[in-house]
């Protein structure tokens, strides 16, 4: 066997062992990103606690994931604090310590349902609650458990339609969405940066991924980036957001 093949084989074993038996909560499980990551992590024998908003529920894929490993599926009402705490506590009481939290959102729905010319205040209220408020509530339920365990990794998603911060994230914003999406996505950048500053010293890493207009064309890039943030290789990239144009 050639040396490079041996290396590849070893590396595959290391990667597979790395994830085995870890526990992960995925919020927004029925989004394209949620499904992609669920499948990837299930194949790596990660126990999955999947959470969806009741407006996006679809448990069809859960059975497929169960053939790989343990999966719990919870439906919550948007903006309902008690509902989200119950869902997280249910997953925690079954799996134990939560190692990873993935905060995803139903970007496709936003792009499909909110037209770029929409300037209504009501649309803002809907997206603000569905995206920003729910991210906050899920984090508020999960992060104390990670702090208690002195370990955890949070990966969140927003889009290149909004501001993604300084450093690598600095770059042009894309116009592939509405003004509401842009403001929401930009707000998430600030919210997560502040949260990162507060919780990284307590052992919980926080990094993000900004989805570009064509993110569905190459899901492998999403997996590559999730791998980077979950593996610990990005441990010193505190609060950074990689832009997947």
């Amino acid at each position: 066997m050639e040396e490079s093949h041996i290396f590849k084989k070893r590396w595959k074993i290391i990667k597979d062992q790395f994830y085995k038996g870890q526990n992960c909560i995925i919020f927004g499980a029925n989004s394209f990103v949620g499904k992609t990551i669920s499948k990837f992590l299930a194949q790596k024998n990660v126990n999955l606690g999947l959470i969806d908003l009741d407006s996006h529920k679809n448990s069809g894929d859960v059975d497929n994931l169960k053939k790989y490993n343990e999966v719990i599926y919870k439906i919550v009402k948007s903006g309902n604090k008690d509902n989200i705490i119950d869902a997280v506590e249910g997953i925690y009481s079954y799996f134990g310590d939560i190692n990873y939290l993935i905060c995803s959102y139903y970007i496709d729905d936003v792009k499909r349902n909110i037209k770029p010319e929409d300037l209504s205040l009501e649309t803002w209220d809907y997206l603000f609650q569905d995206w920003i408020v729910n991210y906050f509530l899920v984090l508020k339920a999960v992060v104390p458990l990670m702090i208690q365990a002195e370990s955890g990794r949070v990966v969140f998603f927003n889009t290149t339609n909004g501001y993604t911060g300084e450093g690598e994230g600095e770059g042009d914003i894309t116009l592939n969405g509405s003004i509401h999406e842009s403001a929401c996505s930009s707000g998430i950048t600030g919210m997560m940066t502040s949260i990162a500053a507060d919780i990284i010293p307590q052992g919980v890493s926080v990094n993000g991924i900004a989805l570009g207009p064509n993110y569905k064309n190459d899901p492998k890039r999403i997996i590559w980036t999730v791998n980077l943030w979950l593996s610990g290789l990005g441990e010193y990239s505190c609060g950074q957001i990689l832009r997947l144009y």
Binding site: I173, L175, C184, S186, G187, M191, S194, A197, D198
Partner: peptide, 27 residues
């Protein structure tokens, strides 16, 4: 964004401004 010790909802607003401004300027 690099301001330390700023509560998350405040920085969400301030960061939202930067994105909003960039979006409107193009759109």
């Amino acid at each position: 964004l690099s301001s330390s010790g700023i509560p998350c909802p405040y920085l969400a607003g301030k960061s939202g401004f930067i994105g909003l401004a960039k979006y409107i300027s193009k759109k």
